[in-house]
């Protein structure tokens, strides 16, 4: 009986305490933010949308490689000697035309892993969260401001320049060979010639690999990782090739050798991929 009464007391006390609390809340200020009319002040680090400042982008692809969901696609073309792409605001020299920089915000997981590796701080998260759309293709943001004609022009120019360079090199080598052959029965000469041959081949292969990789990256969907890696490496090789213009022959030879090796590997990989497909 005592237990019954104390239970009853406990019941009603708890119910009335609860009702008191809800009554009090009836008159406390509500926490609702009347969204379109009122807006929260967002902290500066919010991760809502990716934005790229193309003036600063050097096409290094670090962001592309950092992305865990492969939502960034970058395409680059080497710039020719006569073009000066200028410097970024952080003082990096730009050496590549970035002809494609697409971010698929529908894939993006907002982890911000791409923002941190950027050497020029050109990819950032911005405070814009009202970009929903009815078509998921609208969520693919293209940042590159190059027109297709420009891209074509740049690529054609590059090809022309490389052709010229190759010719020049061949001529130089031919001249060297000649000189060596004239200089006596030096056995090293044959070796140099053969190395020159492979060099030229390798360069061609590298360019082919690069182009192919770019195409692969643009198609994007198949074998994302492989394509991304090879195109990344190709970009680097392109960069180093561009660097090796007016240095002395020794250095160039060494670099060419390295490049040849890399290109050979790439060509092998491409071939493998092709055979797989």
């Amino acid at each position: 009986m005592v237990k019954l009464l104390s239970d009853t007391y406990f019941t009603f006390r708890s119910i009335f305490t609860g009702m008191g609390i809800t009554w009090r809340h009836l008159f406390t200020k509500s926490v609702t933010v009347q969204y379109p009319a009122q807006r929260d002040v967002l902290p500066e680090r919010v991760r809502l949308k990716l934005d790229v400042n193309m003036d600063d982008c050097i096409g290094c692809r670090l962001c592309e490689r950092a992305c865990p969901v492969d939502c960034i696609t970058i395409g680059t073309t080497k710039s020719t000697d006569d073009d000066d792409l200028g410097e970024t605001s952080t003082g990096h020299k730009k050496k590549l035309w970035v002809d494609q920089f697409d971010i698929d915000m529908a894939k993006c997981c907002y982890c911000e892993l791409c923002v941190h590796p950027c050497p020029t701080d050109c990819i950032t998260m911005v405070e814009d969260y009202e970009y929903s759309s009815y078509d998921r293709n609208d969520l693919i943001l293209s940042f590159s401001d190059m027109t297709p004609e420009q891209i074509e022009e740049v690529q054609a120019k590059l090809e022309r320049e490389e052709e010229e360079k190759r010719k020049k090199k061949e001529e130089a080598r031919a001249a060297k060979e000649k000189a060596k052959a004239e200089g006596g029965k030096d056995e090293a000469g044959g070796g140099a010639a053969s190395s020159g041959d492979t060099d030229a081949d390798a360069e061609k292969a590298a360019r082919r690999a690069e182009r192919e990789a770019k195409r692969a990256a643009r198609k994007a969907e198949r074998e994302g990782k492989d394509a991304g890696e090879s195109s990344g490496a190709a970009g680097e090789s392109g960069g180093s090739a561009a660097k090796s213009d007016d240095t002395d022959a020794d250095k160039e030879a060494r670099r060419a050798e390295r490049e040849a090796k890399r290109a050979a590997r790439k060509a092998e990989r491409e071939a493998k991929k092709k055979s797989e497909e």
């Binding site: 009836l26 008159f27 406390t28 509500s30 926490v31 609702t32």
Partner: peptide, 13 residues
């Protein structure tokens, strides 16, 4: 409205 305000919300607005 009652539900909203008891839960510190506003309810339909």
């Amino acid at each position: 409205k009652v539900a909203g305000h008891m839960q510190d919300r506003l309810g339909p607005m």
